[in-house]
Write a protein that binds this DNA or RNA. Structure first.
Lengths: 209, 209
DNA sequence: ACGCCTAACTAACGCCTGTTAGGTTAATAA
DNA sequence: TTATTAACCTAACAGGCGTTAGTTAGGCGT
């Protein structure tokens, strides 16, 4: 399935990575190396072009970062919403929550350089870039709050849970995975099951024999 | 309790912040502003000295960062160990675990710029500095693994929990707090209680009426 | 009073950064 | 065939970075 049409696409011919190509590479580099050490020259080199050329597609480095951050949230948001809506209408609360957790972790680990880049570099980018990303984040957080509120109302969750805190705790835990996850030691799906087990039932041995 | 001896310590006299003073200020800046935007000139300015003077106390920027990282882990390690050993010998497993969780969160939020700086910048520093910090980290992780293993053996925890995963999940969750915690919206102790509640018993409404 | 030691200062270095202006090429449309 | 345009290149800029070398000020022990 390699080079089907035109065996030699390159060879002094213009490669034309284009705006999307630059963005893909930037997302990959940000995920791999964090923010500080990813310069425009590194992005350009990885894209096979020169640093100045990036300014044909983007007005500034901040603009690139902002685009990566926004795409990152959009991907995980859609992934999570789709996972929930794809369930049969009669799915019980526990199943829904497990699906949402799995979808978030999948987007983070298996699917998207954009989402993992977002989680990795968000805390390192200039304040203005963070602010620009906030509305997109808020929308995703609202999706979680809405889901958790519904699960609380229908009796799936305990009545004394604080929705906001629970959401911050959940997403915080899931995102923290990036700091240590090694695909050689287990799959994202298996890990998401562990996460769900702990969050849903806790780790304490029950006394009810 | 302010300026008891010598009302005017400064006033063109040498301020003498010293090595520890520089380190304290570096830790505070790293906690507040992350790694990339904290230059030696900023540290120096905050300390009331000039950038070059830092090289009297430290051989390189990496040396400063390494010192901050190490102190950060040592503080939280001691905090957690003391909290556990300070309990009465007959304290039950749940109490012990709750104390350990509270101690970690306290060190992170209330006590130490060094610990919070560690968590915030660890992922952003050069690889060599990260590597130098690893042994100290490993020792703290071993302390947790030891505690959790004991709680599993004595029947406090479920028998199917994976110690390593649980430890990664716990510390990951606690550390993620730094990304959103606002002292105006609640205390570290109250939050640690919520964390313990969720981890120990889960969020699912129980059916056992 | 002297000399030493500690803790600072000044001034500069080479390097890397984001960014800009203007020129060049290849493909497409008329 | 010619004109247009999208996508790139080249070369340079100012500014910030970590780091170094040499110098200076103040306090302590003798």
């Amino acid at each position: 399935m390699a080079q089907n049409t035109a065996i030699k696409v390159n060879e002094t011919s213009r490669s034309a990575v284009g705006r999307d190509g630059v963005l893909d590479i930037a997302a990959r580099l940000f995920r791999e190396q964090r923010y500080g050490s990813v310069s425009l020259r590194k992005i350009a080199e990885a894209a096979g072009i020169k640093a100045g050329s990036i300014y044909y597609h983007f007005g500034s480095k901040d603009e690139i970062v902002a685009a990566v951050l926004d795409a990152g949230i959009r991907v995980v948001h859609e992934s999570m919403r789709d996972a929930v809506t794809d369930l049969r209408a009669d799915a019980d609360g526990e199943t829904v929550l497990r699906a949402a957790i799995r979808a978030h972790l999948r987007a983070l680990i298996d699917v998207s350089d954009y989402t993992s880049a977002n989680v990795r570099i968000f805390g390192q980018v200039p304040q203005s870039v963070r602010d620009a990303n906030l509305p997109t984040r808020r929308a995703y957080e609202a999706e979680w709050d809405s889901l958790l509120s519904q699960l609380k109302k229908d009796g799936t969750l305990k009545q004394d849970v604080d929705i906001r805190r629970l959401r911050l705790m959940l997403i915080g835990t899931l995102n923290a995975t990036l700091d240590w996850f090694d695909p050689d030691r287990g799959s994202a799906d298996a890990l998401s099951r562990t996460y769900a087990d702990v969050f849903l039932n806790g780790i304490l041995q029950r006394q009810d024999t």
